[in-house]
Simulated assay, not measured.
Amino acid sequence: MISDGSDVTLREGETEETACKCCGAPTTVVTGYLEVGDLSAGWYTVGVTLGKPDHLPLVRLYIGDWTEGAGPDERWALRIGIARDGPTLLDWPETDTAEVRPVFTPLNRAQVLGTPMEGQLWSLLDTILTCDSRL
């Protein structure tokens, strides 16, 4: 990652209306981009399924080198559930892990918590939740 997260700015991207994969309920997914000057610090999606209290809003944060020549060892992604009492870093389901490994490395809680990346993660999440006007 090219930043500790404190100098990152946010650029809002697309908004998509879709159906929840597990129950078919209407779901809104917003995309945004995290930048440090002219450089990319990553991108994210936030999915919200309205009317389903058992479905936490889900942030997927993608960091690393997402240029065409980069491989999965240079790209990482994290999943963060947003509950009433705050965000929680989530592990990737095994079915998703196998599917995404050719594109990026999915990081689980044990790979992030207690590491230098943890502070960056929470700083980026704070930028997303406070600066994206759609959330």
Rank of each mutant, 00 (worst) to 15 (best):
T27Q: 14
Q120A: 10
A77T: 15
W66Q: 01
Q111T: 00
A41G: 09
A41W: 11
C131M: 13
P72Q: 13
G114E: 00
L61Y: 11
A77F: 10
G119Y: 00
L90I: 01
L78Y: 15
E68S: 02
G86W: 02
V36M: 11
T127N: 10
T95P: 00
D91M: 00
D54Q: 15
Y44A: 12
Y62C: 08
V30C: 09
T18S: 05
R101E: 01
R84E: 07
C22W: 09
W122I: 01
P72Y: 12
G47L: 07
F104V: 15
V36A: 13
D38R: 13
E16L: 11
L124V: 02
P57C: 06
S123F: 06
V59D: 10
G13Q: 06
R79H: 11
K21A: 03
R79S: 09
L125V: 15
L89N: 05
G69H: 02
G5N: 03
T127W: 11
R79G: 09
Y33I: 02
I128M: 08
V48T: 12
S40H: 13
H55P: 04
G42K: 14
V100I: 13
S3F: 05
G119C: 01
P116L: 03
E74T: 08
E17Q: 15
V30L: 09
P53V: 09
V103K: 11
Y62K: 05
K52W: 07
A110C: 01
P93T: 07
P102N: 10
N108V: 01
I63M: 15
T28D: 07
D54V: 15
G32F: 08
P116T: 04
P26N: 10
G86P: 11
L89V: 05
R84T: 04
A110L: 02
Y44P: 05
E14H: 04
T67Y: 01
